[in-house]
């Protein structure tokens, strides 16, 4: 064997704690792995490419006339709504793929390496932001093709897209948690849809909240998705930054603060 002689245990520098910079660098390496996997299997990007195209077309032409009188007036309402709905729905895939990935032997190796415990999870979630970016760009592109001209300008549209990507990344920790504790990938899909479907539809994403019965308005107004949609509308349609944006970011931070540690803990326990 060519490799040099093994260093004696006593000569090694051993540390029982992983530093913050090591955690970041490990997570980035794991994200690189995620990107390589996406490049090797581009067919897994079907959903993020087709969903924005189909949903934007479908919802705009179905609801446009009924809600805003015509399609043109509905675009400033629906594009931010579709953006939030599509990108957040995409984050379910994170949990599903994590479940599938964890069943493979390679996760045993990750666990046996002296790397930050959070890295395999954080890396996978980080790599998935590429999916959210694709979905966001396609939704805005579809809107533009259909005649959407946001008054906020390109800069604010970009900030809005970034906001949605950040919030989806935060929410993907919830699905990552489901992914870690669930037995099968399909059950992750099932649970996540049940959670996400009411959240995205019982919001102001597709219809103005004022048209809803009062008891429902109450829920729609506290629904974090509504705040995110409003924040996006403010940014894209008027270029303003409001309380809704702060609320969305605070909400995202809270979700990460709760779900990242319990997900890592569950991941460590499950073997």
């Amino acid at each position: 064997m060519k490799s040099s002689y093994i260093k004696h245990v006593a000569e090694r520098q051993l540390r029982n704690k992983t530093s913050f910079s090591q955690s970041v660098s490990n997570s980035l390496t794991m994200a690189y792995r995620g990107l390589l996997k996406i490049r090797r299997t581009p067919e897994q990007l079907f959903d993020v490419t087709l969903q924005p195209i189909i949903f934007t077309l479908m919802f705009t032409y179905i609801f446009g006339g009924a809600i805003s009188g015509n399609v043109q007036n509905y675009l400033p309402v629906i594009i931010p709504g579709i953006l939030v709905q599509t990108v957040i729905t995409t984050s379910i895939v994170t949990g599903v793929q994590l479940r599938e990935d964890m069943d493979k032997g390679v996760f045993d190796r990750f666990k046996s390496l002296p790397i930050a415990r959070i890295a395999p999870l954080a890396g996978a979630l980080l790599a998935d932001t590429i999916r959210y970016t694709i979905a966001a760009v396609l939704t805005f592109t579809m809107g533009y093709i259909m005649g959407y001209r946001p008054d906020g300008g390109l800069g604010h549209v970009a900030i809005a897209a970034l906001l949605v990507i950040v919030c989806s990344w935060a929410i993907s920790w919830i699905f990552a948690f489901f992914g870690v504790i669930a037995r099968t990938a399909s059950s992750v899909q099932g649970i996540s849809m049940i959670v996400l479907f009411p959240l995205t539809f019982l919001s102001n994403a597709f219809v103005p909240a004022e048209t809803l019965p009062e008891w429902l308005q109450w829920f729609v107004k506290i629904n974090p998705i509504s705040h995110l949609v409003t924040a996006v509308r403010d940014l894209t349609n008027s270029g303003t930054v409001g309380w809704d944006l702060s609320l969305s970011l605070i909400g995202a931070a809270i979700i990460v603060a709760i779900f990242a540690p319990i997900t890592v803990r569950a991941y460590m326990r499950r073997t």
């Binding site: 051993l14 493979k104 390679v106 996760f107």
Partner: peptide, 19 residues
């Protein structure tokens, strides 16, 4: 974490990335 710096593990099922 110290132990992990001292060991290499080769599992019964190949622990490498198939894709």
């Amino acid at each position: 974490q110290i132990v992990r710096q001292l060991i290499g593990v080769t599992g019964q099922y190949a622990s490498v990335d198939e894709s």
